[in-house]
Amino acid sequence: MEVSLNRRHAVVVCLLLCCLASGLSSPDPRHREALIQLEVSMQTGGQVVLTDAEKRLDALLFKMKQEEVSRADFPPAMHFFRARDVIRTSPIFKLLQKMPKAFC
């Protein structure tokens, strides 16, 4: 009888320890947003703060890019010699040609 009682205690203690250990090893949800922001800031351009005009241009470029990606004749999926004319007539390409270029 005493042996089975000790086994029961051992099982209960083991279960409690497992529950405590798993609770301690799970990430703190309060730190999740801080970790996400840290990762975003480490990305290319993550430290750049855009002006309102730059944010509007970024939104416009993103919309244009989404439209171009959904086209059937998506240039990256084609051989360059076939895609060249599609690229030249692309609204995004025309906009990029007008943008100032930085020379280092």
Rank of each mutant, 00 (worst) to 15 (best):
G46Y: 03
R84H: 11
M42Y: 11
E68M: 07
A34S: 11
A10F: 08
D52S: 15
L24I: 05
C18P: 00
A10T: 13
A77Y: 04
D73E: 15
S22Q: 12
R84P: 00
K101R: 15
F93K: 11
A83I: 01
A53D: 06
D85S: 14
H31M: 12
F62A: 13
E54G: 08
R30K: 15
F93S: 12
L17W: 04
Q43H: 09
R84K: 15
E54L: 09
L24Q: 12
S4F: 07
K94S: 05
T44G: 12
S26Q: 10
S22E: 07
M99I: 11
A102K: 10
A21H: 10
G23M: 08
M78P: 00
M99N: 07
R71V: 04
H9P: 00
D28Q: 13
H9A: 08
R88A: 15
L57S: 03
S4L: 14
M1T: 06
P75D: 00
A53M: 01
P27T: 09
P29I: 06
L61V: 12
C104G: 05
V69S: 00
K98G: 01
Q37E: 13
L60M: 14
D28Y: 10
V13I: 09
D52Y: 07
E68V: 05
F81K: 12
K63F: 11
F93N: 14
N6C: 04
P91C: 01
A53H: 01
C18S: 09
V40C: 03
S90Q: 13
G45W: 03
M1C: 04
D85K: 14
P91M: 00
K65L: 07
A59L: 09
I36L: 13
R71P: 00
R56A: 11
P27C: 08
V3E: 11
K94P: 00
G23L: 07
R82G: 01
H31C: 12
V11P: 00
A77M: 11
F74K: 09
L96E: 05
D52A: 15
A21F: 11
A77G: 11
L20V: 10
E39A: 12
P75G: 03
E67F: 08
N6F: 05
L61R: 13
G23S: 09
S70M: 12
E67P: 00
E68G: 01
F62H: 14
L38T: 03
Q43M: 15
R30H: 09
Q47A: 06
F93W: 12
C19E: 01
R71G: 04
H79V: 06
K98E: 11
M1D: 01
E39G: 00
D58A: 15
V3Y: 08
M42G: 09
P76N: 07
L5M: 09
A83C: 08
V49G: 01
V49L: 14
V11F: 09
V11I: 15
K63I: 10
P76F: 04
L50Y: 13
P76V: 08
